[in-house]
């Protein structure tokens, strides 16, 4: 019996060794490569009553989860069944999950509550002829642009953007949100400085931190608290005057691309 046991163990070890040889592999294993960010079809990013967000599921066994306003981790994530409906402003992060692949980075969708529409906008400086958007009211038409700078909802300036915004009557404005594009490879940077003038004597000045990320394309925005009753608002948005040392256009001016000014 001892001999039998010995033979059995020897067989097991033998098969173990021979099998291990055939299992040596250089092939990519589960969880080593990351999923690409999921694509999300959004009905609008400016909410009038509600908007819908629907992931494209074009891969077998792909699940998409989302988080709202910076909550992290699976426990605060919700699995998207078909469509996400949102009635409130917020930042939604969608991630793809799949048994074979590492979870994706997040696709960020920012939703904005529809703002108060000014009566009139008068431009003191002009957008580039090539990137003049849908006309003078592009920035107050309640339509956001895509990540592509050729999208007709972008208004592109290679100089400071100056405009006067008029409201039909004295109106309490809580804040102004300015949406812009970041695409440094296309020489498009965030604003360098924003100044608001209102009620003859008041002004607000805001400097935007310099961009350090080189490999990025992103929709971003800055929300400027106002909290005053105003009739007329003068807005100056300054483009970056000198591109940083790491950029191919070092020392030259950057483009400023804005898609919407939202008055809350």
């Amino acid at each position: 019996m001892k001999n039998f046991m010995g033979i059995l163990i020897a067989c097991l070890i033998f098969f173990s060794c021979t099998e291990k040889k055939t299992e040596t592999t250089n092939y990519v294993q589960e969880g080593e490569i990351q999923l690409a960010k999921p694509r999300i079809a959004v009905s609008s990013t400016i909410i009038d009553s509600f908007v819908t967000m629907k992931p494209e599921i074009r891969m077998e066994n792909l699940s998409v989860f989302y988080e709202v306003d910076g909550k992290k981790g699976m426990e605060s994530s919700s699995k998207v069944q078909t469509t996400v409906i949102a009635e409130e402003a917020g930042t939604f992060n969608f991630r793809g999950y799949h048994p074979d692949w590492k979870p994706s980075e997040a696709t960020e969708i920012r939703l904005y509550k529809k703002g108060f529409i000014p009566d009139k906008i008068t431009w003191q400086t002009q957008a580039s002829d090539t990137y003049k958007g849908q006309g003078e009211t592009t920035l107050i038409n309640n339509k956001k642009a895509s990540l592509k700078f050729r999208d007709v909802e972008w208004t592109g300036f290679d100089t400071i953007a100056k405009a006067t915004v008029s409201f039909p009557k004295k109106t309490y404005i809580k804040s102004l949100t300015i949406g812009y594009l970041i695409d440094p490879k296309s020489w498009i940077f965030p604003p360098e400085e924003i100044t608001l003038y209102f009620n003859d004597k008041d002004s607000i000045n805001l400097k935007i931190p310099a961009l350090t990320l080189q490999e990025i394309i992103k929709l971003d925005d800055v929300k400027i608290p106002i909290e005053k009753e105003i009739n007329t608002l003068i807005v100056h948005v300054k483009n970056v005057q000198k591109l940083p040392d790491w950029h191919a256009g070092k020392g030259l001016k950057a483009w400023l691309f804005m898609d919407e000014w939202i008055f809350n």
Binding site: L8, S16, C17, E19, T25, Q29, E30, G31, E32
Partner: peptide
């Protein structure tokens, strides 16, 4: 046998499908 199966260095003897090649 069970002991062999749960020993990491030997367990692959029987895990013919253990590679998770994508």
């Amino acid at each position: 046998t069970a002991g062999l199966l749960v020993t990491p260095s030997l367990s692959s003897a029987f895990s013919l499908g253990a590679n998770n090649d994508v």
